[in-house]
């Protein structure tokens, strides 16, 4: 029998008082696949991630992680089930040191009583050290996270997901606000994660997308507009039209994200 897909989204929709930010999206992401979500502002990419990760409750449709249905679970349960998420605006624990940030992520047990002990297992420490090297923050390990540059903060957050070793990673614009060199480094990082994790990336930067993407799903006004390889998407007439003049074609402004 074939292995179940890592992430299956079935006719997922959310209705914000009449505004359907995500309107019947279906998508299958195979295990180990790296999928890029493309779309203009307001296409519903971030909302789709919110629905999958439990931040926003969907009004229709279902979400499966492998065989298990996780539709509308609370965030921490979705996370424990195996989905890690990186936010568009990097989100780290600012007053803790870089190492501490990763250590928090390395806690395997999540209960308060289970964590009433001191220190971390040598296994966890080893993983933290490895990830510090991987994201290149070794030198800054004992600095508070608030002192990091924007790009470094993005890598720290990515590092927290790597320490956690969740099977599915949702990355919302991991290169937002990065310089070209930083973007390239991020692409390398993500390419290294390919295969070990199933990854869903929201991205605008086409250069970056070409560097990492295998398959692309294009969203437009809350729906899936097209799906295919980089070359197929670049040739796709619908995508071109949507990107060049969505407001003109549909005669109305796009809904907010």
């Amino acid at each position: 029998m074939a292995e179940p897909a890592a992430l299956t989204v079935e006719a997922l929709a959310v209705d914000f008082n009449g505004l359907r930010a995500v309107d019947g999206v279906s998508m299958v992401v195979e295990k180990g696949e790296l999928r890029v979500l493309l779309g203009a502002n307001g296409a519903g990419k971030t909302t789709l991630m919110d629905l999958v990760s439990g931040k926003t409750k969907s009004t229709e449709g279902r979400v499966f992680l492998y065989d298990a249905e996780i539709t509308n679970w609370e965030e921490h349960r979705v996370a424990r089930a195996g989905i890690g998420r990186k936010f568009q605006i990097p989100s780290v624990f600012k007053d803790l040191t870089v190492r501490r940030n990763l250590e928090v992520a390395s806690c395997e047990k999540t209960g308060v009583l289970a964590n009433l002990g001191f220190g971390f297992s040598s296994d966890a420490e080893a993983r933290v050290g490895e990830v510090l090297r991987l994201v290149g923050l070794e030198e800054l390990a004992d600095r508070p996270a608030t002192s990091l540059s924007h790009g470094q903060t993005q890598w720290l957050e990515l590092g927290m997901l790597i320490v956690q070793n969740r099977s599915v990673l949702l990355l919302d614009e991991p290169t937002a606000g990065m310089t070209q060199a930083e973007t390239h480094k991020t692409a390398q990082l993500i390419n290294r994660l390919k295969g070990q994790h199933t990854i869903l990336v929201v991205e605008h930067d086409m250069a970056f997308v070409r560097e990492i993407a295998e398959r692309i799903t294009v969203m437009h006004l809350g729906r899936v507009l097209a799906e295919g390889s980089v070359a197929e998407i670049e040739q796709n007439e619908d995508v071109r039209r949507a990107y060049l003049g969505s407001a003109v074609i549909h005669g109305q402004p796009e809904p907010p994200c």
Binding site: H76, A79, G84, R85, V92, F93, L96, V104, M160
Partner: peptide, 22 residues
């Protein structure tokens, strides 16, 4: 303790902590 560290993490960013599974 680890719980104390996680608590401080929650103080800094409770959303991030939720998405780490806490």
């Amino acid at each position: 303790t680890r719980a104390g560290l996680i608590l401080q993490a929650i103080r800094d960013d409770d959303r991030r902590a939720r998405y780490l599974g806490f």
